[in-house]
Design a protein around this nucleic acid. Structure first.
Lengths: 352, 352
DNA sequence: AATCGGTGGTTAAACGTTTAATATGTAGGA
DNA sequence: TCCTACATATTAAACGTTTAACCACCGATT
């Protein structure tokens, strides 16, 4: 049995071996090497001997044993939206992950990526999350069908959600989608657009649905016309955005602008428009959502909503760690986006 | 002490508690619940009672304890190139990560992202990697200065490297950069280009250096002229690619084509060219490296080298797991890229 | 001469599992 | 009545730490 972990080379020395080498008790070695400054102190000579032996034997404290004892792992689990994409993390999710890392790293936590979950199977995920491997979990963009968040709420594992459904759970960190969509629509309205389409994200994502709802609500309020042909479901991915735009271009009449649920689908939409021999924004204006790094370098540069992703992600991670360390309750926080006006949006064409 | 892990709700039940509930020994409960089909069998009635109690108490096996005993964690550590970027994972690295996940997921391993390492500090990283938290490690694109790989070679932790320096370690999975660069240069040569520039990646990355060397070697072999002004150091990022191209555009004379070390910098380069009022490929042809998803949708679509990233990453992960599970030795593997010809490259302009 | 206080340690239990070795009980065969 | 065999369950050690509680020793006070 003990052979299993030493295949390939010499095994890692344990505290017991170090202690024996010095001729001292395990406890003494422990105090010296990983020492809390507790009651019992150790003489300088003993200390030196232990340190020397540890060095010689290549001792390294075993984190499993330590965590088992402490009941804490200093690990945070991240559950990324599995969704239906083959790519684990799109540019936006990647940005989120980066923000989470920024916070966890400075607070002394490491990240465990929870990926072994076929189709976001909640029971599966729960098994993984609750087996003691993590002190808390960041759930990113849980899809609508998943029971993960409600199930997790019944457990005592600290959790925070990014881009989740507020009805499902009130530990939600995300942009104020309604206000953000309002900014985008108001911008198009001010440019004279009265006929606007929308390319949505996948409807199992809360952010996609709420943006679509806000789009309709705001269009109605502003008196902007929306033909149903102009509203197409995408998947927050380039290709699907392109396909969606191609469908819109086949409408009986064309909108003068299209608001896209995220930047990737906006890029796809622009590609479709230009491939059809039309121009952005000459014929159709495009507004995206996210402000991913490439948005400003696109041709034309993309008008979009800037999400304070780093702030949101760090905020979520921070709240989670606060809960873990001092039982501070987590409650939802919403962040304001800003409109970034670039070249993909312009005055409405005089088609109507 | 035991209070620490139950803040927030009821604690997770342990095997001992389940056993006590049923009035049976811990061992019996263990065999029933996480049972190996070993010698001792359990009566149907006992089995049912234990299962019922476990269910009732919400028992879940503690992975730490299990791993401690087994000497195996079923976790793979991933060390991403910290490099100097603020974004943890660029589109290419993200693709690599995705490939690794694909393999580990099907083999029953989870991923631990090792990020708490200021400036890729090797000693720090070693402490983290060797504390027993992972069964093996995938090092992705270790920067030149880092001692991590050599240090890790001295330890008995299974390791595999992606895009590392072959001189440093022979457990390297990567594209055959020389052959790939040859493809790109030959392509430009065939289009009539005899004056070619190069935008490199950061020189602390092996892949960037070897591509640069191969570029010079191949240019020489083909009789292609390379003014030193035309060779600029980038960072594999859009912005730096743009800046690099701006410098090239200030040269006393212009190359007819520029080969870029990766796609992101190629996008930046194209942006710079068009911002300067020139056209791609009319005035300057561009060839990239990687074939990221957006390459085909760019305007113009990017001619580039397709890296079989998924194959490489899965291969690396697979080799690592084979070593972990059956001590199979790991040795370097090189994969062939293919030229993907698109719109960003065309016949050389007749400038010369 | 008994007590005190410090210094420098050690013992033992605990964290939650797994598993080899062992024990108990019952039934059937000699 | 004793032995064997089998089915079923238990004991105990082990994985590598941490830490509260305890102990032995010694010089200095009373």
């Amino acid at each position: 049995m003990t052979e299993r972990k030493r295949d390939g080379g010499r095994a890692r020395a344990t505290l017991k071996e170090v202690a024996k080498e010095v001729g001292v008790s395990v406890c003494t070695a422990s105090v010296v090497l990983n020492g809390s400054n507790s009651g019992s102190r150790i003489s300088e000579s003993t200390r030196e001997a232990v340190v020397a032996a540890a060095q010689r034997l290549g001792y390294r404290a075993n984190r499993l044993a330590r965590s088992l004892h402490a009941g804490r792992t200093h690990m945070i689990g991240v559950v990324p939206a599995a969704a239906n994409t083959n790519i684990l993390l799109g540019p936006h999710l990647q940005h989120v992950l980066n923000g989470v890392v920024n916070e966890t790293e400075t607070r002394g936590y490491d990240l465990s990526l929870i990926t072994r979950c076929d189709q976001y199977n909640a029971a599966n995920l729960l098994d993984i999350l609750l087996d003691g491997r993590v002190d808390g979990v960041v759930v990113v963009a849980p899809p609508l069908g998943s029971r993960l968040v409600p199930l997790l709420l019944n457990e005592n594992l600290p959790m925070v959600v990014i881009d989740g459904d507020p009805e499902e759970c009130n530990k939600n960190f995300m942009i104020d989608n309604n206000a953000a969509v309002k900014l985008a629509m108001r911008h198009l309205f001010d440019l004279g657009h009265r006929h606007v389409g929308h390319i949505c994200g996948p409807q199992e994502l809360y952010a996609a649905r709420v943006r679509k709802d806000a789009f309709f609500a705001e269009a109605k309020k502003l008196g902007v016309q929306v033909d149903l042909e102009w509203v197409q479901i995408g998947s927050f991915e380039f290709e699907r955005g392109e396909k969606a735009m191609q469908k819109i271009l086949k409408s009986s009449r064309l909108p003068t602008a299209v608001f896209c649920g995220n930047d990737d689908s906006a890029f796809g939409a622009m590609h479709a428009i230009e491939s059809a021999g039309l121009s952005v924004p000459g014929d159709i204006s495009i507004v995206g959502f996210d402000d991913v790094p490439t948005a400003s370098y696109h041709h034309p540069p993309l008008t979009t909503i800037d999400q304070p992703v780093d702030t949101i992600a760090r905020g979520a991670a921070s709240a989670l760690i606060n809960q873990i360390e001092s039982a501070a309750p987590i409650k939802s926080e919403y962040f304001q986006g800003t409109l970034v006006q670039r070249g993909s949006s312009g005055p409405a064409s005089v088609r109507f």
